[in-house]
Amino acid sequence: MTIAAPLLPPADWRDFLALTKPRVMTLVVFTGLCGMLAAPVQIAPVLAFTAILCIALGAGAAGALNQWYEADIDAVMKRTAGRPLPAGRMDRQAALHFGVGLSAFSVILMGLAVNLAAAAILLVSILFYVLIYTVWLKRRTPQNIVIGGAAGAFPPLIGWAAATGQVALLPVLLFSLVFLWTPPHFWALALFMEADYAKAGVPMLPVVAGEKVTRRQIGLYTIPMAIVAIAPWPLGLTGAIYGITAVVLTAAFGVLAALVAAGAKASKPMGYEKKLFAFSILYLFIIFGALVADRWLA
């Protein structure tokens, strides 16, 4: 005699919202919007809203598929154990259907309502995050964040393409900025979450190479990130509002990264690492905001 597994209660809207990783989506949507507003042409408000909606839905879809695939990892990490799947509030099949459906809807809507270029880049970004980062890289190599960082770097390209129908040097630099920003951002987190990653068997750099190597890599990656962040100003792609903001903020980022790289001790354990992680998020918000201010106020 077999005993049927107990049926899970129907997930409510808050569980589906949690699947989309709304906090991560905020930064994705913001950088996509800034890429659109920094473009040299204006897009009709209705189309702009539709494009941003598609970027948000695409990001949410990728987040849902990520949680569907990583439910086993999430269950053993303190930071993620409360998510809908490991907490038992949702069936995995429901998460899979939700993620696939949202992906298809976001790409099709972008293609029909905005343009094919933006839809194509949106599709690539979803597939990259799910297949390249989540399925292929994350459990196999400490370079997961380095290569996988491209997944979160697509939104400025999508926003620009939504407005112009093409890609130019400035959005490519913005893509590169987010791509190079991702390793020091996540490795700072990994330094004070190392035990969680080790428990889950995720080969993050501190787990497989040690704290010293991770700190050094944070410092090294900050150098090209800083160059790319400031580059639009001397290249004549932006004005002084963006340029000065980028120089000041990147200098502050560099100081924190140098302290982390040197293993400097703060008043609290992992104090500088936590400060770098928190500041890195603020850094991206402000620098992209300065890009829009430069475009509209200069």
Rank of each mutant, 00 (worst) to 15 (best):
K268T: 15
Y129P: 12
D74A: 04
I108Q: 07
P155Q: 14
L284T: 02
V172I: 11
G82L: 13
A117K: 04
M110H: 05
A226E: 08
A226M: 09
S280E: 05
V146M: 00
A113Y: 07
A75V: 00
I147G: 01
A94I: 01
V172Q: 07
V213R: 15
A18H: 02
L205D: 00
V228A: 00
L17I: 10
G58K: 08
V28Y: 08
A251S: 10
T2K: 09
A18M: 07
R79T: 10
I218Q: 04
A261N: 02
F128I: 12
T80P: 08
A298Q: 08
V114G: 11
T250V: 15
C54P: 04
L174I: 09
V292K: 10
F179G: 01
A75G: 00
C54E: 01
P45W: 13
R23H: 09
G236L: 13
A278C: 03
R14M: 15
D74N: 09
K21T: 13
V76T: 10
R79Y: 07
V24Q: 15
I244K: 15
M204V: 13
T26D: 14
G210Y: 02
W68C: 05
F288C: 04
A64F: 02
Y242M: 13
A39N: 10
P45R: 15
L282D: 13
G60P: 12
E194T: 13
A61F: 05
A229T: 15
Y133G: 09
G289I: 14
A94W: 00
F175C: 02
E70P: 03
G58Y: 12
P6D: 11
K274C: 06
L85P: 00
A75S: 04
A51V: 09
L102P: 08
A81Q: 05
T141N: 12
M25D: 10
P142W: 11
E70D: 11
L127Y: 14
C34L: 07
C34F: 13
S125T: 14
V208W: 08
W68V: 02
G236I: 06
V135D: 14
T245S: 15
D91P: 00
A209I: 00
Q42D: 08
L282R: 06
G254K: 04
G35Y: 01
A5D: 13
P84I: 05
L205A: 01
L170A: 05
G289T: 11
V46P: 07
R14Y: 12
L19E: 02
L137S: 08
M204H: 03
G63Q: 10
I108T: 06
A150T: 09
L33I: 09
G63H: 08
V46K: 12
P232I: 05
G210S: 11
A61C: 11
M77A: 03
A246C: 07
A118G: 10
A95H: 05
A264N: 03
E70A: 03
P224H: 15
E273V: 05
M110W: 04
I55Y: 06
A278Q: 06
M36R: 01
M110C: 10
T50V: 12
W181T: 06
H97E: 06
A81F: 00
L189H: 10
V41T: 11
D74P: 02
Q67G: 02
L57F: 13
